[in-house]
């Protein structure tokens, strides 16, 4: 008992420290070597002797670090919410077709607009970005509504998962058709968007992004009681005073909004949303989502920072697409969880 309490009280400070170290490494490491005291200097707002270093840090590494932090947090929490809601350890934003919905929405805007109105959206600057974000949100929520409808009607988690995967295929094929008839520039933009990246934003927009991902992630703590009860099954939850339909709607809204925001700004980031909840459940043996959400926040941010770091390992000329790194980290985590489950069941 005592050791569990001790573990609980130590865990969060330790993981926050770990997170800070990762963030610092993200700032300090990169293809250009910047002395550590200069990094500290520049981040603290002092003038630096080297204007290039200052530019690299403030225009590239700092926004990347902030965006990775926010995106990882949001995806970790969204994945946890989905896994609990659907009571399925393999649920996650991308598996359920939510990011496919986003891709479809973005596809429509980026690819179709050029056809219909005859201009490329990427030339619109801030308004173009806004349109992409709105399209991404719209696509994600349309899929969410569909998934929710199906889960209400059919009920089985497996069927919901299959429908999610099917929606993914469907949106891919529609996007394929759109690509075929689109301007080359738009297709290129779309492909780049689809590779996912933490480095698309200026520092101002990175702060905005951090605000609209981190705040809802932390607000998800208010869903923890609902999530705890939902994990017991609908009947027990209802018997313990939970309004199931409202709780389910709120959980899906929260997870969907987080996924949609991240997808809109960074493109579809895979595997973080699925792998982080397992890590969160692994580090503290509890079913209480008050702790699990905290864990998912910290570990999600840490995982994204780690992936971002690996994507631009020192010594490499260019950055890897972030999704290849997340899959590299995420897939082993998910496989190990399945492996462990198999042992537990037999």
């Amino acid at each position: 008992m005592r050791s569990i309490l001790l573990r609980k009280s130590i865990l969060i400070p330790v993981s926050i420290l770990f997170l800070l170290i990762l963030a610092a490494l993200n700032l300090a490491l990169g293809s250009v070597r910047i002395p550590i005291e200069e990094v500290v200097n520049i981040i603290l707002g002092n003038d630096s002797s080297n204007i290039i270093w200052e530019n690299i840090l403030l225009r590239t590494r700092l926004p990347q670090t902030i965006v990775a932090l926010g995106a990882g947090m949001a995806l970790g929490v969204a994945g946890l919410l989905m896994q609990t809601l659907f009571r399925n350890p393999l649920a996650g934003p991308s598996v359920l077709g939510i990011s496919s919905g986003s891709s479809l929405g973005v596809g429509f805007v980026l690819l179709l607009a050029g056809q219909v109105w005859g201009f490329s959206f990427s030339r619109l600057g801030i308004w173009g970005d806004l349109a992409v974000i709105i399209a991404s949100l719209g696509g994600a929520f349309a899929v969410l509504a569909l998934i929710l409808f199906i889960s209400n009607k059919i009920g089985g988690t497996l069927s919901v998962l299959i429908i999610g995967v099917m929606i993914g295929y469907l949106s891919n094929s529609i996007v394929g058709v759109l690509k075929f008839y689109s301007m080359e520039e738009d297709v290129h933009n779309y492909v780049i968007w689809g590779l996912g990246s933490f480095s698309r934003m200026s520092v101002d927009r990175a702060y905005l992004f951090a605000a609209i991902t981190i705040i809802p992630s932390i607000l998800a703590l208010f869903l923890s009681k609902s999530l705890n009860l939902m994990a017991l099954g609908d009947r027990y939850a209802s018997n313990l005073g939970l309004k199931i339909k409202r709780a389910r709607l709120l959980i899906i809204l929260c997870a969907g909004a987080l996924t949609a925001i991240v997808t809109a700004f960074c493109g579809p980031i895979i595997f973080i949303g699925m792998a982080v909840p397992h890590l969160a459940k692994l580090v503290s043996r509890t079913s209480n989502h008050l702790y699990l959400i905290c864990n998912a926040c910290i570990l999600g941010a840490a995982t994204a920072l780690l992936c971002n770091l690996l994507a631009r390992l020192p010594g490499m000329e260019s950055e890897l697409p972030i999704n290849s790194v997340t899959a590299f980290i995420g897939a082993p985590v998910v496989i190990s969880v399945i492996w462990k489950k198999r042992k537990e069941n037999f």
């Binding site: 009681k225 009860l229 027990y236």
Partner: peptide
Amino acid sequence: LTDRVVVPNASVEELVGYGRSPYTGMLGR
């Protein structure tokens, strides 16, 4: 109920604690 509930990582004390949900506040503390 007869529903077979599999709550990952739930301890006995946590389960019994969820029984207090009708009386606890927003965060379930």
